[in-house]
Amino acid sequence: MDAIPEHSVLLSRTTSALDRIEALYLKVLRAALLIVATVLLICAAGWAAYSLMRVMRSPDSVVEKPSVVSVAEIVAREASTKTDAPRAGANVDVLRRERAYYDAFVKKYFALYREKFQPSLRDDDKKLTIGEFDDLTINSSARLDAVRSGDLSFEQDRKDLDGYLPIVTQAANSKQTVERLSRYRTATKRPVATQVQRTRVETRRGWDTFSDNCENWYLSPIGCAVTRRVEVPYTETVQVMRYPDGIASPSEVLKGYQDRYFQLLAERRERNASEAASQRDEIVRGHAAGWNGLSQSILIAGGFLVLMFFFLLVAIERHQRRSRSPVA
């Protein structure tokens, strides 16, 4: 029997080793394709679901948060009377319902003032009538003017006032308010030096080129010497009797609470409206991004199909290799 040449044995072994390496490579390739394809499928499904959720959101679903002010916020600092109530206009002619509401509110508001604030007045303080109290606080005549002209929504204003009255009632019963009114009741005025601007009349003599009230006024220099009385401003230091800083009368305390409440309410209403508008804009932008995401999901799904095609080619190659292998 002829011996097999050594180079044939070496070639056979080399071919067998290459076949094993190729088979291992195909296994690794199949596994990698399956892993990548699975990841692509999961990403495509997740991205499509997220994009679809953004597309389905509606800007109308955003609801503006209610604006509220607490008792602690309006009594947290000393009363301020810098914010004046709007001045009343003329010829107020509105529906009976609006006028009746404001009249009823002023009566309840004035009753609160008389019960909680007026007892702290000093002996020389003036007691407000209900009309003076109205002009100092909510100024219902100005509100009626604004309602009639369309500058003020009566329904919104009524809602705001109905929300304010319970808050200011709690503030009137708070410890801070009681202490503040007590300090006013026992405070004494002190002389305070202050600068005031005043004017005085002075006589001054000068040359008037337009005057002809003298002899030879037409000769050079043209005009006459005249005497005028002019007002001259000056600053004077005077002593004024004032309460110490932080002392406010009962009406000033109440007016400060009111101004603080409606200032905070307006600021929060504006902020909430801005936040709601921002959320609506974000939803609108999300619609465009959502459609773009759906398109990307389709592309990812296409990549998945391409990988599965390559996986199919590898599977066919494996099947053909097994078919060519000799049966033991």
Rank of each mutant, 00 (worst) to 15 (best):
V92N: 12
D125S: 11
L313T: 13
K159N: 12
A171E: 01
N139L: 00
V253W: 01
V168R: 06
S153V: 10
Q156V: 12
M308K: 11
S211M: 09
I138C: 07
E270Y: 05
Y243T: 03
S80L: 03
D93Q: 12
L165Q: 07
G256A: 02
S325A: 14
P166G: 05
A76D: 12
S51M: 00
Y257T: 09
S153P: 07
P86I: 01
V284P: 03
D2Y: 11
A100H: 08
R269I: 02
V63G: 02
V68I: 10
L121P: 04
E22Y: 07
E270G: 13
K82H: 09
Q263M: 09
S16W: 08
Y50C: 09
Q118D: 11
K108I: 08
I300Q: 12
R57S: 02
G89H: 07
V196W: 03
I35T: 13
K82Y: 06
V55F: 03
V196Y: 07
T137Y: 01
A17F: 08
G290K: 00
R97F: 08
S61N: 01
G223V: 07
T186C: 04
R228H: 10
P250K: 05
S12C: 11
L313R: 15
K127E: 12
A146L: 04
E64T: 15
E252G: 04
M53R: 11
N216K: 11
A72R: 10
N272F: 09
R242K: 14
R269C: 05
K82G: 13
E132Q: 14
P166H: 10
G246R: 05
A142E: 04
T199R: 13
P326I: 01
V147P: 02
D162P: 07
S174A: 06
V327W: 06
P59M: 00
D160E: 14
I42P: 03
G89Y: 00
L26Q: 14
F309T: 15
K189L: 01
I21L: 13
P5V: 09
A100W: 04
A100R: 12
V230G: 09
A100P: 03
S251I: 06
P59K: 00
W291R: 09
V226T: 13
K82V: 10
G303L: 15
A104V: 08
V94N: 04
L152N: 07
F304N: 14
S149L: 11
